[in-house]
Design a binder for these strands. Structure first.
Lengths: 227, 227
DNA sequence: CGCATGGTTGAGGTCGCTCAAGCGAGGTGG
DNA sequence: CCACCTCGCTTGAGCGACCTCAACCATGCG
């Protein structure tokens, strides 16, 4: 792959949107392409990484595993998002394992390149900070979910995330990945997830059709979520 | 309080250690002192804050509350640490409530002052990023704890955090705050926390004497934590 | 003393997990 | 074409960890 391609890819990453062409050029030498196939591991928990990753296409799963082999999905990284920034700034071992959910392409940007970009452009540092902040807040939401919400509330909260408040009271949410993965994300077993969906379906709040979930009354769903 | 004092206080904050006197001077006008008494609220969940907070002395509790009034402690901020950075960079409402655990003094640094410091000194931005990264990792640990560890493992993990690997196999850990707060931090009820401690005590792993907990055999404790 | 606060202990309930079986869709190969 | 498999999902029965509610005890303080 030529540098031309890398530059074009970099330019399309939200993180780098406001960099000048010269800054992109400066970044490019510090960037490595990482192609991977479904279920291939990018790095294991405990590995040391020397740079952050950007997802160009494909999705990546960040997860942890207990000694007993139970796996727990922490986050699903979509194209355009980044991961392992924190580990880069700390230089500590990775707290999670990263694995391709499907064939995909990543860009690994080494720390020195990021440092250069930050020095050149303070706005870039601010963007990184904002990115980490968002991650932080979403993790706080997670802690909240796991600690004080019931399984039903977690499921509804997850679904509401995908609902558009502007749209009508009734709308369809299509699950982005398979139900097992979502269950893990919500810290539920697949069995419980399935049961919760059907129980909500019985209650007349939603209708399930494979991965398509129709929220029948957004206001009722919201009210239920806060009860 | 005069500006002299603010500058002296700023200089002692880890976050600002590497700033020059001139940079500290530039920061000072954007800093506000916040004195508070035990259980006084700094900001409520949902409030908008225009700057980050540094704890000079006293401790601050970050927590969330469910609609039913159940409170859950997310973090206990010690002197020298900061909070609300994420909210500052995003400009979003606070996801948590901040409350003094005892009489204390905070410094509120407004966003524009931080921006200035970042522009002047890229290393400062890096320090902020490292700070947020540490927060992120500790939250990942939390999610891990809540989702795949048992109550016993959570308690042991918490205690091991305070143990010094360099010291002998037997050492005393003094709980920094009262047991109710720690229980909440570990997502346990006070009752369960108490029971777990006594159960571990029966198992000969530790001895409880008020807030002083003696770990009787560090290796055994570690082994127990992983089983 | 009376009261508040923090901690312990007991009895009982429940949410979500585990284990196990069954089902439908999609794919492969004989 | 059908047998057969896998994979994702569902359903049921039983169970256990942790919570809830309630009483009780120790300490400190006005």
């Amino acid at each position: 792959m030529s540098q031309i391609d890398v530059r074009a890819l970099l330019r399309h990453q939200p993180m780098f949107h406001q960099l000048s062409d010269a800054q992109i050029d400066a970044l490019a030498p510090g960037v490595r392409e990482v192609r991977g196939q479904k279920s291939q591991v990018v790095f294991h928990r405990g590995d040391v990484c020397e740079g952050l990753y950007l997802v160009v296409y494909g999705r990546v799963k960040l997860s942890i595993s207990s000694a007993q082999g139970v796996e727990k999905v922490i986050e699903i990284i979509q194209p355009g998002q980044s991961f392992a920034e924190a580990v880069m700034f700390l230089g500590t071992p990775c707290p999670v394992t990263a694995q391709f959910l499907e064939d995909g392409l990543l860009l690994q940007v080494e720390a020195s390149a990021i440092d250069r970009a930050m020095t050149d452009d303070p706005a870039f540092a601010r963007r990184l900070l904002a990115g980490l902040s968002m991650r932080l807040h979403s993790l706080i939401r997670d802690v909240e979910r796991y600690s004080i919400e019931s399984s039903t509330q977690r499921v509804l909260g997850y679904l509401l995330q995908y609902a558009d408040p502007e749209q009508g009271a009734q709308q369809v949410v299509t699950l982005p990945v398979n139900k097992n993965l979502i269950a893990s994300r919500l810290n539920l077993t697949p069995e419980t997830f399935s049961r919760v969906l059907h129980q909500l379906s019985d209650a007349g709040l939603l209708a399930v059709n494979g991965r398509d979930i129709t929220l029948l009354d957004l206001d009722k769903v919201r009210a239920f979520g806060c009860g």
